[in-house]
Design a protein around this nucleic acid. Sequence first.
DNA 1: GCGACAG
DNA 2: ATCTTGTCGC
Length: 256
Amino acid sequence: MANVPDGPRFYNPAGPAVVHSVPLIPLPMAYYRPPGPAPDPVVVRDLTRLQDELRTRIRLEPLPQEPQLIAGCDSSFPTPETVLSVFVLLRFPSLELVEKVYHVSPVTLPYIPGLLAFREAPNLLMAYEKLRQQPDIIMVDGHGIAHPRRMGIAAHLGVELDVPTFGVAKQKLTGTFQEPALTKGSITPLTDKQGELLGEVIRSKDKVNPLFVSPGHRCDQATATRLTLACLRGYKLPEPTRLADHWAEEFKKEVR
DNA sequence: GCGACAG
DNA sequence: ATCTTGTCGC
């Protein structure tokens, strides 16, 4: 069994079990220590500073007009050392798929909370360049300004492309919120310690975990939330993200 | 010192 | 993100 860390182990992949007469509680795979060397503290410091520079370029504003084309993007990892990024382009508001492209390249950085963009954005940009038509706005899988330094991957991509973006994440990275009601369409604010709005927590489907929606660049909260709701089609994930997810899995089969 | 920690 | 079986609920 590869990738098993040394030292004490708390993960029990087989489910209920007994070791030394002590029942082990099943925990998610996240409790495995990530493979590879620990992130270089100097690299982390430099990337963090770069984020602070990029942050000054963010503009939060409403879209000048209703989008005609909306993009969705996602990344997957066919192997631990290769990243595959996908861009899908959908007509809005019909949501029909008009384009799907992908790009594969070597992984250059491990996953580090807060620095996700430096791991995935370079390859996402390569995939973006393969689109024949450009979107009016991009829905990114991950956070926009709902980030410790307000520079989630959605904001990062938006600034580098200077294209409107917003983020739709499945898990919280930072901030506090109250659980929205369990009915589709319920919304509560995601705020920082000072009470500033970072994003909105949206129940995209009855009784499923909510989504975390935040603006990235050249977009505001109202627009991000409105477009997210307009892209729902009975699934937890809005169509741009859901289709990008789907094709990331399909393309992965082709490259393995 | 102790938690929290997108994908 | 990725591995991985069955299972519970609407």
